[in-house]
Amino acid sequence: MSMPSREKMLAAVRASQPAATPLPVVPAFTGLASVARFTAALTGISGRVVVLEGWHALAAAVSQLFPADYRLASAILPATVAVASNTPIDRLAPIDLAVLRAEFGVAENGTVWLPEAHMLHRALPTVTQHLVLVLDQRNIVATMHQAYAQLPDVGGYGVFLAGPSKTADIEQSLVIGAHGARSLTVLLH
């Protein structure tokens, strides 16, 4: 049905586009890939960074950070709500806390890469009230250039996540917790 428009648009573009110009080679733009830089960047955008003593300290750290009786979804801790990619919305909606693994972090801006494979459900990282991401501190790269270089492909769905959900749409006042998670904690191990 839309074939005529497709041909019309492509023909119009062909008729209008200028002579080809080269696609530049983007330099590596490396830099400091340290935990300190990552922590400063993420803290600067309202995220929280906690360094774990080791992987074994994960459960204790989470229950210390979230002492109340939370409805927890997780692939790496004993969960109180079981979540899979087809979990219905009414089971997702009440989730308070999700603890998930992140793939790598970016020091320049405090971002972490969260691929679909670690999410349990595509909506979980945003539907949960609070989000904890666990990251191996050896997997921190300097800039977004190294970050994309790490990705052979982005999977079906993947997110660079930088801090908790926020907005400044009312008079430019920063408010944390717009629609997604109200807090983001990165646990480094």
Binding site: T111, G158, F160, G163, G180
Partner: peptide, 8 residues
């Protein structure tokens, strides 16, 4: 430094 969610 970047948007909170850069989603692919």
């Amino acid at each position: 430094p970047i948007t909170t969610y850069t989603s692919h």
